[in-house]
Amino acid sequence: MSLNLEDVARIALLSRIELSPAERASTRDQLNGILGFIEQLQAVDTTGIEPMAHAVDVVQRLRPDVVTETDRRADFQAVAPETEAGLYLVPRVVE
């Protein structure tokens, strides 16, 4: 599997990472180098093997339904790029 420039542009859009046209070409080459390395996985027969998503074989622990939090808006918004009236501001979203 080898990526072309359009693939790179699509992945960059999904990732929300701007790439200049020049970066796109070098990124393509680097990603193809890594994908070429990863490609060796395809040769392994994994028929009937259960995928392993977690490092430990335990089940989800459940939290009691209790409100434990108090308002810390001022602390949290102290590090925010742009706020007003307690809201985080972003460029206008058009629905």
């Binding site: 599997m1 392994v44 994994t46 093997i49 392993m52």
Partner: peptide
Amino acid sequence: YYDAYYLKAQKIRRLIA
């Protein structure tokens, strides 16, 4: 690509463990 890469790698992860 999920099956070919991600799921495949998760299966190999189990073999390694």
